[in-house]
Design a protein around this nucleic acid. Structure first.
Lengths: 89, 89
DNA sequence: TCTTATACCGGTATTTGTATCACGGTTGCT
DNA sequence: AGCAACCGTGATACAAATACCGGTATAAGA
């Protein structure tokens, strides 16, 4: 086993991440947003549904631009537990 | 052709992107930064040298955090020509 | 000189991302 | 009803990301 097969937490993170994108998409259709970002609609769907839990940086950059989102906020929203992880505290 | 085999421009973009990371790393060693970001040193090296031109979003997020970089600035620094491409103009 | 640490490079293995194809569902129009 | 158009979905195919291994080169220090 050479490549870590994505931990359950990573997959869960992918789902949360996709949910964020879907929420940001709002009323716009997948096709519309995907075209604006320059990716295929199927790719966008996989990312939104969490079936592509670790999409490429530039794909997300294009989608974030199309959806008018901040990359830093997206990353922060899916931040790893690091050490403290007080969560909602 | 099912998956676009990465255009020459995308590879070039990967090199520029890697150069940014290397510059931000400064004096710190690859191993040190890679460990801080939770990725292998080989992966960091490949990204820095442009041999991994389209890294995953969360890999870059971890590296950006370890290097204290802004994702938005990183994306902006490697922005596509879109249409206008007035650049510094 | 020998050892250590760092970085680079090639190959290999496995998993995953992305794109194309083909299907079912819904809506609107003739 | 028949048709086209759009949307979302599943299956499939290929390219690439990530990680591990060994080897090489350079520089610093004992």
């Amino acid at each position: 086993m050479v490549r870590t097969p994505l931990t359950p937490w990573e997959r869960e993170r992918g789902e949360r991440f996709g949910a964020l994108l879907r929420e940001a998409r709002g009323e716009r259709s997948m096709v519309e947003v995907a075209a604006a970002a320059g990716v295929s609609a199927e790719t966008l769907r996989k990312i939104e549904t969490g079936r592509a839990p670790t999409p490429s940086f530039f794909t997300i950059a294009a989608l974030a631009f199309a959806l008018d989102l901040s990359m830093d906020e997206l990353a922060a929203a899916c931040a790893p537990p690091e050490d403290g992880e007080a969560l909602s505290a």
